[in-house]
Computed example of a mutant assay.
Amino acid sequence: MPLFLLLLALAACSTTPTPSPPVMSADSSLTLFDFDDPDAPGWQIENDGVMGGRSQGFVQIEEGTMVFTGEVVTQGGGFTSVRGERAADLSAYDGIELRVRGGGRTFDLDVDDGTRHRGREVNRQASFPTTEDWATVRVPFADLETTAHGEPVSVDPLDRSGIQTLGIYIADGIDGPFQLEVDWIRAYADA
């Protein structure tokens, strides 16, 4: 038998395992807001004027960054906020991470699933620090405190599958100007 036919016969008889497809792992993060996208949803300001306060907040997108600026006046209110709509199912994630720079002021992240308590909007918030330099901060869903008009309330746990909006508040009790820059906002999953 010629060598060529022998090799061909051996090749036909060998059992080469079929390669299995690669195992795909779940993404460890999901981008919710990327301010490089010209079609990014708009963000809306809510100042403490709704309760008689005089704080002022402003928001704009500059060079791929959301910039939240203004001034906090603690007398009569003491907060301003910015909120973006983003319906998302985050049931596979453990929290929200943001890449921010804020000059040392403390801000609060608010995660809204549409829950209401006695007709009032329920806030689920946790604070995050900032520095003069860019940093990634994480806010675990487990750290969110639940309130309605500043008072603790007992409601169902956060419905991670029904997130409607994310908000950022400044209510740190310090009078004066502030600036927060946000590069992106993502949901993250612990490894």
Rank of each mutant, 00 (worst) to 15 (best):
F141H: 07
Q60E: 15
L166P: 06
S81P: 02
I96K: 04
D94E: 12
G162T: 09
L32I: 13
P38F: 07
G162R: 14
M66P: 12
A191G: 14
E181C: 08
L6Y: 13
V23W: 00
G57Q: 10
D110A: 12
P21A: 11
D48F: 02
F128K: 02
L180I: 02
T18I: 13
W134P: 12
Q44A: 15
P22N: 09
D89V: 04
T115K: 05
D133M: 05
V50Q: 01
V73P: 01
Y93F: 15
D34G: 07
G78K: 06
A191M: 10
T136I: 14
E151V: 12
T147C: 08
N123W: 02
P129A: 11
L3P: 01
G84N: 04
F33N: 10
P21I: 03
D190N: 14
S25L: 15
I61H: 10
L30T: 02
D48Q: 04
R186F: 03
A40Y: 03
G76V: 10
D143G: 01
Q60A: 14
V23Y: 01
T65F: 02
A187D: 03
L158M: 12
T136R: 06
D48C: 09
A11H: 08
G150W: 09
D48H: 05
G70T: 08
M51D: 02
D39C: 00
D110Q: 08
T80R: 01
Y169C: 04
S81R: 08
I96V: 15
L98Q: 07
D113I: 01
D37R: 10
D36A: 15
E181T: 00
F79M: 10
T165C: 12
R138Q: 11
T31A: 14
T18P: 00
P41S: 14
P2G: 08
R83L: 04
I61G: 00
R160L: 14
Q75P: 03
P17H: 10
A40I: 14
A40P: 00
F107D: 07
T65M: 12
D175P: 02
E85T: 07
S55V: 13
G70D: 07
T146M: 10
Q60F: 05
T106Q: 13
E63W: 02
D94A: 13
E71M: 10
E181S: 14
G57T: 09
P17Y: 05
D143H: 13
G119L: 14
V100N: 05
P152S: 11
E63L: 09
V155R: 02
L158R: 06
F128G: 05
I170D: 02
T106A: 12
Y93L: 11
E151C: 00
Q164W: 00
E71N: 14
R186I: 06
T74V: 15
H149W: 04
P140A: 14
D156I: 03
R118F: 11
L180M: 07
D110I: 14
T18L: 15
Y188C: 01
P177N: 11
T165M: 15
S127N: 07
L90I: 01
L90Q: 03
G173I: 03
P157V: 04
T130A: 10
S14P: 00
M1E: 05
D27T: 03
W134G: 03
V72Y: 01
D39A: 13
G49W: 03
I96H: 08
T131P: 07
S20Q: 15
E145I: 10
T136H: 09
T69V: 13
Q164Y: 01
M51V: 12
G150F: 11
T131D: 09
D133V: 02
V50R: 00
